[in-house]
Design a protein around this nucleic acid. Structure first.
Lengths: 356, 356
DNA sequence: AGGTGCATGGCAATCGATTGCCAACCCATA
DNA sequence: TATGGGTTGGCAATCGATTGCCATGCACCT
């Protein structure tokens, strides 16, 4: 076989052996110089660095990964396409994750649960085949296929947005229940006695927590669950606008209308508010409306939409940091990390109207 | 050295040799059975498949990539964090890309230009080091570092959203100029003679095209560039709301106000419309407002925001398909692929008011 | 029965970087 | 000058799957 020289490389770039030859040392020396500078003579190191630079040498990732038995890629498992409504929750979380991972020299791979079964197997292959070093889950289910589940792959996993501690996955969430309770209490304190809750996907963690918070506030105030009317035909977070419109139609048809409307997401709230205002109902004078998530655009929808802002970017960053720690073998992330959300007052809520 | 058996594996899963042993064949037979079923006896193939299944065998990706010299990962280069405004352009494009890639058995890795210089080098390493097989660019610049540019890495590249054919990168775009011209002509036809254009980032492809379309329409109508007043203090697409508010303030301060406002993005338009309506200007009766992008939430902002919807998902899918073809070595993608955008009428435009 | 051809399976080299182990070497000290 | 301590560099095995090449074996044909 012809001996390869730097000049004969075709598809591939220069190899470590090329760098070694140019620098006049052995490949092992090059490897050490690049990875563990203390181990070689400074002058030699510089000569090697110069040679690598001159050749435009980039180590082959596959070879490196194979040898050291791990990669520098982390995957994020999404429940479906990036959300298309007004809230950019998922995008913002991703940004937080990406920033931290990049800072630590890791790369981010997107995996999507919302495809066929075959895809789910591919996701598992990424983990079991050693392509990824860890996973961050934004879905309520761990990927699984046949009798294998992501958690069997032996890589660190962290959940964000949804609490998966029940499945043994450390999770980063916000205090949704508490925040909703506080918001409801504020409304109660300003005279509201009849509530309307527009639900998210039934059984979804967010819906359970947010509705739960409202109920807690009602209980504390001695109002009981009868003080709230629940509208729940919302099956997917991507259908927020449609849900909000439908909820508004149902609301408008009521004989006695509640004075405060709490929506499980901003998308719902935006469509809801728009629809009832079109029907001649004054917000917030006649009816107070509140969303959840903290969509920036809410500021510009009629009266600014009051909402609860999740610390999305920080949550993403926290999840990534936790994962990185787990990867480094340091103390695992606390089971559950709760980051505080923020109440955004804006203009869509007001004291309850005095009964005419 | 102790001979490894399936029972002694620790961090790693079962190997192909374990499968071979269990099935009573050689590793090469296993490899062929898994990759090239025709090459081995059906009965043997089934025995091997059963053994693999029983052991939960997943081939090691690094070893495979090293041997065959390529990976099944494609990277998407973003200009910054996923956009936080109301338009979900980037998210939607990503979804289109992801769907196609997944369908073809590829995975998607996110790379972000908006970090430090070191990060940009890491992006190049992904390409030069063989981690990724192709790249889709959503940024106006190709990643580069020192004297290396992404295009030197020898992997297929496709641009989407921005036209990079000038840099030799096949691009998938929409007919922004034409769409804007048509929209402006529609406004002219309904009596509008004075225009206000709120610019995007100066020099940005979108801004150039969209403004250019407006100018063309004015020219065709014999109105000339004097018929438009341009507001341009917008430096980044992430600052759309702030820009819209500022533009509205400037608009309100004018002695003679144009009757039609064309904004370079929906975010701008949403904030703009909100601000002038607060100041008592009726939209669309007194002033018509139009955005660009097709944000779903525009439907719910005051009168529905008229806009031009980019076929984002389709553009992403087209870009991915083009890239896959290039990877497969088939005829390269046509230099420039133009997908039609769609005019969304909604309620924020109307014939020009008759001068009082 | 002998020969030909095709289908199947196995050996071993290969991809490229990493690293344990040991040899070579330098300088300093006795 | 000989010896010792400490540093630097090189050889070769290794990670795990893939594949060219060859050996084996079976069936079928004359």
């Amino acid at each position: 076989m012809k001996k390869r020289t730097a000049a004969t490389h075709e598809g591939t770039g220069p190899l470590m052996s090329d760098v070694a030859r140019l620098a006049g040392v052995a490949v092992s020396t090059v490897s050490r110089a690049l990875a563990n500078p203390g181990r070689v003579n400074e002058e030699t190191r510089q000569r090697i660095a110069a040679a690598a630079e001159q050749l435009g040498y980039t180590p082959n990732a596959a070879a490196r990964n194979l040898r050291i038995g791990r990669s520098d890629i982390v995957m994020v498992v999404l429940p479906g396409p990036l959300f298309y409504g007004a809230s950019q929750t998922v995008s913002e979380v991703l940004d937080g994750v990406d920033t931290e991972l990049t800072k630590a020299g890791f790369h981010l791979l997107i995996a999507n649960l919302d495809r066929d079964e075959d895809t789910e197997r591919h996701i598992l292959d990424l983990a079991f085949g050693g392509t990824v070093r860890g996973a961050i889950i934004l879905a309520s289910e761990l990927p699984h296929h046949g009798n294998r589940t992501l958690s069997d792959a032996g890589i660190p996993i962290v959940s964000v947005l949804l609490d998966l501690t029940g499945k043994g996955v450390p999770s980063v969430v916000t205090n949704e229940r508490e925040a909703m309770r506080a918001a409801a209490q504020r409304l109660i304190a300003t005279g509201h006695r009849h509530f309307y809750f527009v639900a998210g996907p039934i059984g979804n963690f967010h819906d359970v927590e947010r509705y739960g918070g409202l109920i807690e506030a009602l209980d504390v105030a001695g109002l009981g669950e009868g003080a709230v009317r629940r509208f729940g035909q919302f099956y997917d977070f991507r259908e927020g606008f449609a849900c909000g419109s439908a909820a508004a139609a149902a609301f408008l048809a009521l004989d006695e209308r509640p004075t405060a409307v709490l929506c499980c997401s901003d998308d719902i709230a935006i469509a809801f508010m728009h629809t009832i205002r079109r029907a001649g109902i004054a917000v917030p004078e006649a009816v107070s409306v509140m969303g959840f998530d903290g969509a920036a655009v809410g500021e510009f929808c009629g009266p600014g939409l009051a909402t609860i802002r999740q610390p999305t970017v920080d949550m993403g960053a926290a999840a990534a940091q936790g994962l990185l720690k787990a990867i480094a073998g340091e103390a695992a992330l606390a089971e559950r990390t709760v980051l505080p959300s923020e109440w955004l007052e804006r203009g869509s809520t007001a004291p309850a109207p005095t009964p005419s």
